[in-house]
């Protein structure tokens, strides 16, 4: 921790003959250049084109029928009831997916950081959901929720959680929990792996010292584990939030945004607008709105991270 607190200090000059110029300007960019070139050509240019759609009236199949419309699309957002419903659903979906994935993932990482019998096999098995193609996991979960061919509704009913063994995906009040559950299943390994790798880089001496000082397990968790994990937690939670907010596949396959828009999130709405209505201009406008929200969110998380690291 102490070593890291000084992380922004410029590295000491190891050899006098290296010029400062080379070290500060050229060297980092030498390491970065492959990444910059790839991202620049493959993502950045299409991204700028994609964002520019939001200021145009553009239909995919009518390339000659487009034109610049300024902020017209953005004004339309304000009065679009569906946009606001989708925004609210996006918050709900993202919040619960991230929070539950994170807590369960942290728990799993802590467990995996202890010794127990059969650990290697256990680890390989619990990480498996991450490897299942999304499309397949969505179908499997939709299948599990179907009372005719899946056991979940019957179990939920006998536990008293549901009054009848019905398909929650058909219930507007509950439908969103279907994809959320599938998402948790799919995403727990992500947090577990990243946090486990971070846990393993905590020097063991710290725990030994804490134990000698008579600290309880909970105390050493709060005083050693959490602070050490904080940077990784901030990064993974932030990225995962961004991904989940943009993640339409599970919802699209499991509920298609329905019933009655109850699981419509911004990214499924973007899909419908772009590829059903073929209104690329408006779809891009919604996407930019999502982008702005996520930018603000990331700004806050990065600021928090900075605060946390410099305790």
């Amino acid at each position: 921790m102490i070593a890291r607190a000084t992380k922004t200090v410029v590295p000491r000059k190891p050899r006098a003959r290296r010029s400062l110029y080379l070290q500060y300007l050229v060297e980092p960019f030498a390491y970065l250049s492959p990444a910059i070139v790839l991202i620049g050509t493959v993502i950045l240019i299409p991204l700028i084109i994609g964002i520019s759609y939001s200021f145009q009236s553009i239909e995919l199949l009518r390339p000659f029928n487009s034109g610049w419309v300024g902020f017209e699309n953005y004004l339309a957002l304000w009065t679009d009831k569906k946009f606001w419903i989708a925004l609210e659903n996006t918050f709900f979906w993202t919040f619960w997916s991230v929070v539950l994935q994170f807590l369960l993932g942290l728990g799993l990482a802590l467990l995996l950081n202890t010794r127990f019998w059969g650990k290697r096999l256990f680890q390989a098995l619990v990480f498996l959901p991450w490897a299942v193609p999304t499309f397949l996991s969505a179908l499997t979960w939709a299948w599990l929720f179907n009372p005719v061919i899946g056991p979940l509704p019957h179990w939920l009913a006998s536990l008293g959680i549901l009054s009848e063994p019905d398909n929650i995906l058909g219930d507007p009040e509950l439908a969103i929990w279907g994809p959320i559950l599938a998402n948790i299943w799919f995403g727990v390994p992500f947090f577990a792996i990243t946090l486990l790798a971070a846990l393993q880089s905590i020097p063991g001496e710290l725990y030994e010292a804490a134990e000698i000082d008579g600290a309880s397990g909970w105390q050493s968790f709060c005083k050693i584990t959490l602070p050490f994990l904080a940077p990784m937690i901030a990064i993974t939670v932030m990225l995962r939030t961004i991904w989940i907010a943009n993640f339409a596949d599970l919802i699209y396959v499991m509920t298609g945004g329905g019933p009655a828009n109850s699981t419509q999130i911004l990214s499924t709405y973007i899909f419908t607008t772009a590829f059903r209505k073929l209104d690329f201009g408006y779809a891009s406008t919604i996407a930019v709105a999502l982008l702005l929200i996520l930018l603000v969110y990331s700004g806050i998380v990065l600021w928090l991270r900075k605060k946390l690291i410099k305790i």
Partner: peptide, 11 residues
């Protein structure tokens, strides 16, 4: 069926 509100062709 109650969940037929979201049924598509395959369902």
């Amino acid at each position: 069926p109650k969940d037929s509100v979201s049924w598509g062709f395959n369902e």
